[in-house]
Design a protein around this nucleic acid. Sequence first.
DNA 1: AATATTTGCTAACGAATGTTAGGTAGCGTA
DNA 2: TACGCTACCTAACATTCGTTAGCAAATATT
Lengths: 211, 211
Amino acid sequence: MMKSVGIVTEAAPKQSRKQELEQKAALLFREKGYAAASMRDLAQVMGIEAASLYSHIKSKEELLQNICLPLAQELSQGLTEVLSLEISAREKLSKALSHHLSVITRNTDQSIVFLQEYRHLSEPFRSEFLSMRKEYEQQLMLILRQGIRNGEFRKTDEKITALTLLSAVNSTPQWFRKEIGITPETVAGLLTDILVNGLATQPIASSSNTK
Amino acid sequence: MMKSVGIVTEAAPKQSRKQELEQKAALLFREKGYAAASMRDLAQVMGIEAASLYSHIKSKEELLQNICLPLAQELSQGLTEVLSLEISAREKLSKALSHHLSVITRNTDQSIVFLQEYRHLSEPFRSEFLSMRKEYEQQLMLILRQGIRNGEFRKTDEKITALTLLSAVNSTPQWFRKEIGITPETVAGLLTDILVNGLATQPIASSSNTK
DNA sequence: AATATTTGCTAACGAATGTTAGGTAGCGTA
DNA sequence: TACGCTACCTAACATTCGTTAGCAAATATT
């Protein structure tokens, strides 16, 4: 039952076919959406018949789960680690955004599917996913609250700010291509700078300016 | 046999049946996604049979078009108007974000469908939609460029910044509920403040200004 | 009262969907 | 050699899909 190929020399893409399937599925789901992407579409991309897919997977939804859940795990774990550090709120926010961006820019297809198609998970998984997301948002709010309390951040609505930050960084996979020379770390620096320091060269006095 | 149970006496069905259908369709598409939402689902929400929907519409996609295209028009027109004003870049950006937020917070269901399901438009429409979006992004970049040139804004990557701003405001319909007392104008003020002035109370030296 | 429009019905269509059953060729290993 | 495993095949299934045809009651218009 167990694959005893555990010699260290396995750097070659031997563990491939299923992984290749999952990669192709992520790309297909990204492009057409989970519901609109058929197993026959996926089979065509793989160069085989639709029924043959079931030699590798149990169901279509298993593919979606294998895209969403590992990503959710990796994101959650990273943020929890950052929260445990004893550094300023500003540094925490910077590290949190960097880790988040690092994860999603290294998995752009998966991230887009993760963000947009999670609702097609069936029931134990969907709820689990949503509560993980809620906890993630609340952990981010914790950082903001700390920063506001000790004067590092301005007094903003924590919830709105957290959701706004998240959706700003979550749009990155839409335009990020690793071929164009820009690294995830550079992106993290750029976005963190914009969001923390703002666009303006000098802040405006009052809170309201519209009339 | 027609159901002659007209006793129900709906309060004031001022809007036509077709408008009601389009509103319900927007909500359904938002909740399940366009591809996963069936005409039979929609019929059930309307309390009629699926085939009866076709007394009001020509096709499922017509519903999607009637959700996406008016919204795209209203957004584009507003931004073009702002661009024509002779005011500072900062004021332009503020007005642009305010108008954008005003439109999407007044049509939350439609906005979410508009943002996530446009790809299911068939071909003349999808391309038209994409080019409108591209022009919208470029108009926003124009404001940023103006602000950077005349020193109102810090030197950031215009494209990345524009996309980041857009996705930040576009997440608003996800949490905005008009019942909770907060007005679109207040949201616009909050978000503009965060994005323009940043989170920090005092900007950091930002050593990572390599490029 | 006669007519037209709106709004709904039942029945059914062909096409597409995810998935199962059962089989086969090739390959590495005991 | 025999075995088991991976990776694929053809054929077919039950459902669901968007949509059409044809008809009828209610409502509005004349």
